[in-house]
Amino acid sequence: MKTLQNNIFLFVLLGVTLALNFALQRWLDPYYYKILVDVGIAIILAVSLNLINGITGQFSLGHAGFMAVGAYVAASISVFLVQPWMQGAGLSGDTNLIAGGILVGVAVVVGGICAALAGLVVGLPTLRLRGDYLAIATLGFGEIIRIVILNTDQVGGARGMSVFPTPSAMGGAPVKSSFFWVFAWMIVCVTIVARLAHSVKGKALFAIREDEFAASTIGIDTTRYKVIAFLTGSFFAGIAGGLFAHSSTGFITPGGFDTQKSIEIVVMVVLGGLGSISGAIIAAVVLTIMPEALRGFSNYRMVVYSLLLIIVMLTRPQGLMGMKELRWPWRAKAGG
């Protein structure tokens, strides 16, 4: 009961999201709706990478690889299991939003779990590497994942994979990652990462970043915590991947999960402030909206990002927010 009370705010937030979902689907221009969904996915990616890179200080350059695992697993479940079943049962994504949403939700979760397992496989051997070696090793793993997908014909190889079948085959519109599902996952991701990082035990993640060796001399099993960070981070990267696969066009290619994608997420985390969750959120929002808002900017987007990276490192290496967090004003004193 007490537990429920402690989380009441969370449930209210989820309820609001659900209510908003119907309002937005009805009245919001599809173009803006798409951007909103993109923003939600970007936040999940940035916050989950922030757990690994910012909070735990383990510089990973392979986040897009885990996203790819989640995307392809979720897409495969959707295409090979869920859709044939729905078709057989005469269900359409249009009319059975909830049922379809739950089925896709399952696909997304399984994608997340597979990504977490991939994170474990990557993490266990590489986590004893330090700094830049870890960066290169994770970059390598990300590339290996991408190349394996590229060579798997069942999921389309280099041609890519279409998650949504033609409408006629579905007998209606397919189930998409709706605003609700994306933002519900975003809320879960932010909550878990924030509570983990600021809990008594989870503070150990910051300790590892600050001084791994000193942390181990006060009884902190640093490997275990690094694995937890990696598992959690890659799980949410997988979730983001699954949601992405089911968003807008529903078309994924291995090329969409290359090192450049990983670096884009890194840019969000660095600009927001390594270790600051609200910083990562702000950066994810701004960097997702900016290219859409400024027409003709897309050519210069990466040039601007790269300059920002250099300038931020030279002038304000702690990023926009440093390690500070924005808090709900009414909770600022409580320090929750």
């Binding site: 007490k2 537990t3 402690n6 809990s199 989870g202 300790a207 942390a215 009884g219």
Partner: peptide
């Protein structure tokens, strides 16, 4: 952080804010 290993609570508990 020095009390880290002395804390018996599981991480899951902190995630759901158990009493």
């Amino acid at each position: 952080l020095g009390f880290n290993s002395a804390s018996q609570r599981h991480m899951i508990g902190t995630m759901i804010r158990s009493p």
